[in-house]
């Protein structure tokens, strides 16, 4: 909680409009049991219960998703539904389980319990089908420094078994504003350029969903604005669904149509900012809503 950074930026009511549907409370997705409070605090658990709902428009549908490492539970009984075209902001402090959840969505980490469907596919049983439609920008995305930007992208294309990818590579390099430096070694890139190259690597395979894990990490204000602008354009221009994991509330509130609040692996709430404001009786201010759920007390 202490690691959470907030600002007043972008917390206006215009960010509250979302594509999320009404929250259904209190029914477990799998066995119909009443949901127990997920936090020792008195805050209500408004996490949706999606598993039995119509999944036709659901890009991601998780039910009881749990991940344990030994005795430690990193993700705890997560129920989540993300709709097509959403920019879903996954909120929580460092160590809340955001990255682990994304890795389970990709099939890179196996769930200890529960299930998840990504674009209708089970990432545990059909990881290749999922990974061919999902782009993932990891928190500490690595690159081959001895290769140029163009060569790094070409390698991703080859791993995706794409043919005649030259034009595609040039297109995404243009989209992220790196056309001029396509032939430059990545080891000479700044942090911001690397992040944009990471986004290009995510987009080059024409995914349907993108997972962006702390995409603005280490960027200067200009870099952050450029990245956010790019992210905002993705659903409209490329028909993508974006899952944006971050602990920076003001960034998420700028771009997200819906948010999910995660604490110690438990999903405390999910919905549009307006919906969550309605439930909590607060203004459509993500910071206040977050504080309400996270601390278990009215802000």
């Amino acid at each position: 909680m202490d690691e959470l950074k907030t600002t007043d930026e972008g917390s206006g009511p215009e960010n509250g409009a979302g594509a999320g549907e009404a929250l259904g409370e209190g029914v477990s997705p799998r066995d119909g049991e009443a949901l127990k409070p997920s936090s020792p605090h008195s805050a209500p658990n408004d996490a949706e219960t999606p598993a039995k709902e119509d999944s036709s428009e659901a890009v991601i549908l998780a039910a009881g998703l749990t991940k344990r490492y030994g005795r430690e539970t990193v993700v705890d009984n997560l129920d989540l539904r993300i709709e097509r075209g959403d920019i879903f902001g996954f909120l929580g402090p460092n160590g809340a389980g955001k990255t682990t959840t994304l890795l389970m969505f990709l099939g890179l980490t196996l769930p200890s319990a529960g299930s998840v469907r990504v674009l209708g596919e089970d990432p545990v049983k059909e990881p290749l089908k999922v990974k061919s439609q999902v782009g993932y920008l990891a928190e500490n995305m690595g690159f081959y420094g001895d290769l140029t930007a163009y060569e790094n992208l070409s390698y991703v294309c080859e791993l995706n078994k794409m043919r005649d990818y030259g034009e595609k590579v040039e297109e995404v390099l243009g989209l992220v504003g790196l056309s001029e430096v396509a032939g430059k070694l990545v080891s000479e890139f700044s942090r911001g350029m690397r992040q944009r190259l990471g986004l290009a690597e995510v987009l080059v395979k024409d995914p349907k969903v993108v997972f962006l894990d702390e995409p603005t990490l280490g960027l200067d204000p200009d870099g952050i604005n450029t990245m956010l602008e790019l992210i905002t354009r993705l659903p409209g221009e490329r028909g993508l669904t974006v899952i944006l994991s971050s602990h920076l509330l003001y960034l998420v509130s700028k771009v997200a149509t819906r948010v999910g609040i995660l604490k110690k692996g438990k999903l405390l709430a999910q919905g549009s900012i307006a919906e969550l404001a309605g439930k909590t009786g607060l203004e459509a201010d993500l910071e206040a809503i977050y504080t309400y759920y996270f601390r278990g007390e009215a802000a």
Binding site: L108, L128, A138, M141, V156, L159, N160, K161
Partner: peptide, 17 residues
Amino acid sequence: RERNQGTLSKILSQPIH
């Protein structure tokens, strides 16, 4: 080396076994 420089998760997030 791939793990430390962050390229392993990138490779594995592509559609290859």
